[in-house]
Design a protein around this nucleic acid. Structure first.
Lengths: 121, 121
DNA sequence: CAACTGTATGTCATATCCGACATATGTCAA
DNA sequence: TTGACATATGTCGGATATGACATACAGTTG
């Protein structure tokens, strides 16, 4: 978080910690979730492009249809690892995956959510 | 795997399956490992650039020195998730991480390892 | 309507990953 | 040498992710 913003928030009565504080963590957490959602969408897109069912993809990656469904909906029980493994198994290149990971989709709601996450001091 | 290469291998007496075969999986696995190693190196590089100890980084990400050590050596017990989370906690951008994920480091040993992984038919 | 296909959701036992701790190794200075 | 500090390695109980299964839901076809 920028120092100017932090000062403003503190002046408004918000409790803002240091380095490992709530906000920073939630920032990282949010980015992680966004990455997962982006990867999940790619899994679904690639599968549909290949015209195969979740069942078939499941077999391809040695898993089950239900887990593939969770993968594509970015369920909280799925790891980054499995998402990437799935993409690789469908033939995605590291460059493609890197592009997804590195491309931030601008979201308008971000700010509102962030404010909610703050703790009134 | 390219069709030409597959044909060659089969002619030489190697058993080569289809889509979900051993080779493809081990390819994905190898890429995954390579990604992890690249991310691990970045964790170490960023930490050293910030001139902080593993202990301090551990505190920053809510972990322990031993786990940070494993992180930086790409121990098999560390997940992609934790690697990325650590980078984000140190202030890495999605673009930076995406670049690491997407950049393949050419390795000469790859071919030899691949041949070893084949199953004589 | 029923029957079928594809996808989503909930649950569970087990496998994997986690932080934490002890301890080893390595380096440098007193 | 001893001590202090940074990093690596092994282990362990608890937390989380896993594949598998049942089942619900949504289309489509007959």
């Amino acid at each position: 978080m920028k120092a100017s913003k932090k000062k403003k928030l503190e002046a408004a009565g918000w409790k803002v910690g240091s380095a490992a504080d709530f906000l920073e963590l939630s920032d990282a957490e949010e980015m992680l979730v966004n990455m997962k959602v982006a990867l999940a969408k790619k899994v679904k897109a690639m599968r549909q492009e290949k015209k195969i069912t979740q069942q078939q993809l499941a077999k391809l990656i040695g898993s089950s249809q239900s887990r593939v469904a969770k993968l594509e909906t970015a369920d909280r029980s799925v790891s980054m690892e499995l998402l990437i493994r799935s993409l690789l198994s469908m033939g995605a290149t590291r460059a493609q995956i890197g592009s997804i990971v590195g491309t931030r989709k601008t979201k308008k709601v971000a700010k509102a959510k962030k404010k909610k996450a703050l703790v009134k001091g």
